[in-house]
Amino acid sequence: MIKHHPKFELIQAYVNGDLPASLSMGISIHAEMCPACQQKIAQLTEQVAESSFEAQTIETESTSIGDTSSDTSFDFESMINNITLSAELDEVAKPVTKTITFKTKTYQLPKVLNRIKLGKTANVGKLSRTRLQLDEDEIHSSLLHINAGGGVPEHTHKGFELTVLLDGSFSDDKGEYVKGDFIMLDTSIKHNPISQDGCLCYTVANDALHFTQGINKLLNPIGNFIY
């Protein structure tokens, strides 16, 4: 049962279209598996839509005169004519399913990721990682696979780290996480996730991991690698 959900502010920013693609996808992936959040998103979208197209009306009464006269280049009629020139309707693209294989296990990808270009898979020990080609500068999104018994050494984050569990489970000192869980961590959190039976995660981080414990500090140069 899913216990970890995106908090309200995040859902709100998602509905407004204010989040980067990587985080928006994280929320879509979670919602695909979580009816409760699906409902919240639907409700909020309805409300935002309502107030967007309604509040504007009130505003219009006081500002429209200045606005429309300053904007003489906007010709509604010719835009309408242009748009309606062709009566053709768009065809609906058929939904495709895409799978990905790590080691010997094959997973079906969430719908949202079906068209995303994936990089080559890199492996270190029990970890495998494939980057999503989203080009969001310092924000990196990946599919991270942990083989049974593997884990990520204790680390903190210089920025944020989002993990959405796509399959399997893992645990850290706070408890166990299952398929669908949406786990958002910030700089203050130290953790050391371990996966008994293996798992596949969608991860987004805006900076390298920072390993905090003894010998693992030697890993800091590869913090970049994992997330």
Partner: peptide
Amino acid sequence: SNREDNLSDDIWPVIEGEVSQDEA
């Protein structure tokens, strides 16, 4: 990002899938 990959319709489908009504 100078990307023209138009991801939005994947993130927020314009054609509404079946929203699961159950137990929400």
